[in-house]
Design a protein around this nucleic acid. Structure first.
Length: 805
RNA sequence: GCGCGAUUAGCUCAGUUGGUAGAGCAGUCCCUUUACACGGGAAAGGUCGGGGGUUCGAGCCCCUCAUCGCGCACCA
């Protein structure tokens, strides 16, 4: 602001005569006041008298200003802080998020609204921390969808929920324990479980209030938690059904083992890390073998090559030969297997079936022995001889040294770049281990999912995610669903000590083995992978299998979630929906991209660039944050969250606020007539333009282009309605803010009325169509604008009818 | 190595079926007796990553290369 350019005296005159303070006037007046007070103190009596009267003039101005403040609700800029909590409470008290209430309203108003269901299930938020920017985006998008459909007259249901988030939460809690100098391994399982439960329930409360802060119009009366008793039971029932159908089996297979967390993990719970290692070539009898992991080689007694490899033609499958190896002489066997890549290294390798997926497969094919080399804590076992009980990092160079001393080291290639799978939570290198676990047989389930996608029963937004989904389903491996942690839904299985078979006992009442009758049974202490329960979420959240909600609202319309869940979660929901209910769980999958910082960098605690969405709502209001997250943010692609953008949308809230102020003051005493038809030609044209826009944005909304609809509305309101139409209206409609030269205003009352009706109509339309995006400011203004003459009872904006079906 | 995506104004990004390039922010200049300075107006700024092709016409379709990001695979 350039106060220096603004004549103080002029400001003073404006202020005193109008009593309407703007920022400049206020500052100018205060500055004059200071000058005058100085003047009074330091000059002669005559001059001071003049100054004193000026001071009293200023106080008259202030008094007038106060009168305006009292009378003009819209005088001050829009203040989200005074509004949002009150509005949210009004919605809650009115029960408008509840489809049953909507049906009631529909019935009371003639019965054609709020009959058809429209359902969204909220992806259950992990109850182990606070919401982040990604959650804010998800909540906003889902809220836009549900508000739009609700206004369109659907019996809209959005079910909120939280996830116990098994391993994730346990890891968070273990970090907390670590800080306190405690360890889960020194605690009784029950004690640990209870502590994590208390921790989770506390966080659940925070998360829920934060969801409310974003304005989410989800039905809290249907709030669900993945550890609700009924849900736990159903998850266990699903396990039993899968077991009975032969789709779940207990098998000793290679699993991803995290030696820090002491649990197996599924393929999606690992993360590859690029790293540089040495690559060693060793003499193995007549062969040269290459490896980056010499420490696994103690037990290697099979040497494998491709059956078509001409270089090794003279060796036959099953040939045996003796050789000198790390800890002395051994006998090795030649195996021919097509899994070998002839072009890699020397085309020959030895296998370690216990610690490698590919090796395991080869060993299975040829019925070879498997031996554990590395224990569960990541230390070498006695087979390693002098290296036993050493950590891998310590043992590796020593083993290489020994092989070198024995003359078995052929060469070393430094700088071998490869990526190793790591625990996605702690970064510890995953040690593949053979372990008896529960597995879901994926192939038959995945095939059904692929078929459903091919038949377009589930569609993806954006569509290219279908390819990723398909790729994932075509290359699926059996899913390890058991975890060696306490925090989760218990696997309802028991092991018989007699016949060594497992059986399923959901109710926990079977004490004798149903197969051999042995009473020596022990309970499985493992819990389910959290995705095993959340994979069933669309069913469970609706009270599967017997609740009326399930019958009314399943399958759901759209699942909105982060694009990173395209393979972690989406396929599992499709699979379970098809398996349990023979019906896809949702018709559309809407995937939003990741929310990055202003420079487009991934947010992370270590980088310190994490933006807390609640700080932004606090600073600029929830509506501004919502628009900032949505406008220009196309589905599936990443976005940069910039504070200046959100600030811009705060200004937009205020703009609408002031547009309202202008329109209300220009239509004082005019009864809004929704059926008004006597528009002037000009107003007719404007009405048609406005209608065309609404048709257009409704189509955008239907086709999930919210970023487009929001931007178009923003543009219309600011640059058409405000900049053009309102300016033009000043020449037509007399109003207290208009030019003093009243002759500029139209004299024909019919022309005036036409424009007044048009303005009221447009304001109404704008508030309705903006409501899904910026619910708070629109609902607040809605309470100040007059209802139509034919309104029997004006309902809150949240349940007001969208102009186009 | 395979797959997916991106490359458009200084920055962050839109651009739905191919038809004379858009927004927000930043920057420049001007404007304030009042809906809003959380404001108004104006101008400026881009050979749409490079190259080739299809077409009357390509930011958009096809091929190719480059760079960046993400995911998967590979630890013989």
């Amino acid at each position: 602001m350039q106060l220096g350019q603004y004549p103080k005296t002029f400001s003073l005159v404006c202020f005193v005569t109008t009593g309407r303070p703007n920022g400049f006037h206020q500052i100018a007046v205060l500055s004059i006041l200071a000058d005058l007070l100085f003047f009074v103190k330091h000059t002669n009596e005559a001059s001071s008298r003049v100054a004193k009267s000026l001071i009293s003039a200023i106080f008259i101005g202030i008094a007038r200003c106060a009168a305006h403040v009292m009378n003009d609700k819209f005088l001050k800029p829009y203040n989200p802080k005074e509004t949002e909590d009150r509005i949210y409470k009004m919605w809650l008290d009115g029960d408008y998020f509840n489809p049953d209430k909507l049906a009631e309203i529909g019935a009371a108003n003639g019965g054609n609204r709020f009959t058809k269901p429209y359902t969204i299930i909220m992806p259950p938020l992990n109850a182990n921390g606070h919401i982040h920017a990604g959650h804010a985006l998800a909540m906003t998008l889902e809220d836009i969808m549900i508000r739009f459909k609700r206004m369109q007259g659907y019996k809209a249901l959005w079910v909120p929920g939280t996830d116990h988030a098994g391993f994730e939460t346990q890891v968070v809690y273990e970090k907390k324990l670590e800080k306190e100098g405690r360890s889960r391994f020194k605690m009784e399982p029950k004690e640990l479980y209870d502590e994590i439960m208390a921790f989770t329930l506390e966080n659940k409360k925070h998360i829920e209030s934060e969801i409310q802060k974003i304005g989410a119009s989800c039905d809290w009366s249907r709030n669900r938690f993945t550890l609700d008793e009924k849900i736990v039971k159903e998850v266990q029932n699903t396990f039993k059904k899968l077991f009975d159908d032969g789709l779940v089996y207990r098998g000793s297979r290679i699993v991803n083992w995290c030696s820090k967390h002491q649990t197996s993990l599924s393929d999606v719970e690992t993360e590859s890390k690029e790293q540089k290692d040495a690559f060693y070539y060793f003499k193995y009898g007549p062969f040269i073998i290459g490896t980056a992991r010499p420490e696994t080689k103690f037990g290697d007694k099979y040497v494998v090559m491709h059956p078509d490899d001409k270089r090794y033609e003279q060796y036959k499958h099953g040939d045996k030969f003796d050789l000198e190896w790390i800890n002395g002489p051994i006998t090795a066997t030649v195996i021919k297997d097509a899994a070998i890549d002839m072009a890699f290294g020397t085309g020959v390798m030895t296998i370690t079936p216990w610690h490698s997926g590919i090796d395991f497969e080869i060993a299975e094919r040829h019925k070879l022995e498997k031996e554990q080399i590395i224990d569960w804590r990541g230390k070498l076992l006695p087979i390693a001889g002098e290296f036993a009980d050493m950590k891998i990092a310590e043992a590796r160079p020593k083993i290489v040294e020994k092989l070198k001393a024995k003359g078995l080291l052929e060469k070393v290639e430094e700088n071998y770049m490869h990526s190793v799978p790591c625990c996605y939570k702690c970064g510890t290198a995953i040690e593949p281990q053979v372990k008896a676990q529960w597995f879901v047989k994926m192939k038959p389930l995945a095939d059904k999912a692929l078929q459903a996608i091919a038949e377009e029963k589930v569609k993806f937004i954006p569509d290219n995610y279908r390819k990723i989904f398909n790729y994932w389903m075509e290359n699926t491996i059996d899913w390890n669903i058991s975890r060696q942690i306490v925090w989760g839904i218990p696997v309802p299985a028991k092991l018989c000590g007699g016949c060594k078979e497992y059986f399923v006992d959901v109710d926990g009442t079977i004490s004798k083995c149903p197969k051999c009758g042995s009473a020596e049974v022990t309970k499985d202490t493992d819990t389910f992978d959290t995705w095993f329960s959340s994979g069933q979420w669309p069913l469970l959240a609706l009270g599967y299998p017997d609740s009326p909600d399930f019958k009314n609202f399943y399958p759901t319309n759209v699942m909105e979630t982060g694009s990173d869940l395209i393979f972690k979660w989406i396929p599992r929901m499709v699979i379970f929906g098809l398996y349990l209910e023979k019906k896809e769980p949702f018709k559309y999958v809407y995937l939003h991209g990741m929310v990055n910082d202003a420079q487009g960098k991934k947010m992370s605690k270590s980088k310190g660039n994490v933006v807390n969405p609640l700080d932004l709502t606090d600073k600029y209001g929830t509506d501004a944050l919502r628009l900032g997250l949505v406008v220009g943010n196309t589905p599936g692609s990443e976005m940069s969250l910039r504070e200046d953008k959100i600030k811009g949308y705060k200004n937009f809230s205020n703009k609408i606020w002031n547009i309202t102020r202008f329109i209300l003051s220009s239509t004082e005493g005019v009864a809004y007539d929704r059926n008004f038809t006597a528009y002037t030609e000009a107003d007719k044209k404007l009405s048609e333009e406005r209608h065309a826009l609404i048709v257009d944005i409704t189509k955008d909304m239907e086709e999930y282009r919210f970023y487009m609809a929001a931007e178009k509305l923003y543009h219309y309101v600011w640059h058409t309605l405000a900049d053009v139409i309102l300016e033009d209206s000043k020449k037509i409609v007399p109003n207290p803010f208009g030019p003093k030269d009243a002759s500029a205003a139209a004299v024909d009352p019919a022309v005036v009325l036409s424009r007044q009706q048009f303005l009221l109509r447009t304001l109404e339309r704008v508030l309705i169509t903006l409501h899904p995006f910026i619910p708070f400011v629109t609902e607040e203004i809605w309470s100040y604008i007059p209802g139509s003459v034919d309104d029997k009872q004006k309902l809150p904006l949240i349940v007001t009818e969208w102009p186009i079906k």
